[in-house]
Amino acid sequence: MVEWLKLVDKARSRSIWMLMYCTGCGAMELPPAMTSRFDMERFGIMPMATPRQADVILVTGYVTKKTLKRIIYAYEQMPAPKWVVSHGSCPINGGVYWDSHATVNRLDLFLPVDLYVAGCMPRAEANMKMFTELMDMIAKGEARGWEEYVKNRDYYKENQRKLFGYDLVFTDGRSAL
C-alpha cells in the first residue's frame, strides 16, 4: 500500500497541471519556460484551462482584495491534492505595491502556500527551478498545503473574514438542488 502511494506520489510529481492566475506581470517569464528553450512539458507540466483540471495554482503577480476572492474561489474549485505557488515578490510581501491600500501583501495568510519563488519577476530559470523543487516535494510527500487548509480552516477563514469584512461563502446552500 505504501509502495502504491509512493507510486501515486511519483505520478503526481511527474504530471503537474497548472492553473495560471496571471494577476500581474509575473507571468511574463512563463511562456519561455513553456516553449522550446526550456520546455516544461518535459516534466509533464502543462497549463490547463479550468481549476477542475489543475493541480497547482500559480499566483503570478500582486494580489488585490478583489482578485483574492477569485483566487480563493478558484483554489476551492480545484480537486485535492492541490498546491499553491506564490510566484514573484508581490504575493510574498507586496513587492513594489506593498503600501497600496488595495494590495494584499501576504498570500500565505489566506491560502496555504507550498512554494515561494522570489524575484521581480522570476526568470525562466527560476521557474524551472521552482517546478523541479515542487516535483521533489510532491514525490517525497512533503507538499501538503491542501491538508493544512482543511486542518487550519478556521485560521484561514478568519484571516479572510478580517480582510473582506464578511465570510467568504461562494455558495450559501440555496443553490443545492
Partner: peptide, 16 residues
Amino acid sequence: KVNLDDFYNSAEPYRP
C-alpha cells in the same frame, strides 16, 4: 458533491 452554481466561470463566483 458541489452546488449547482459552483461551476467554472473564469473564477468569477456565479450570482443567481
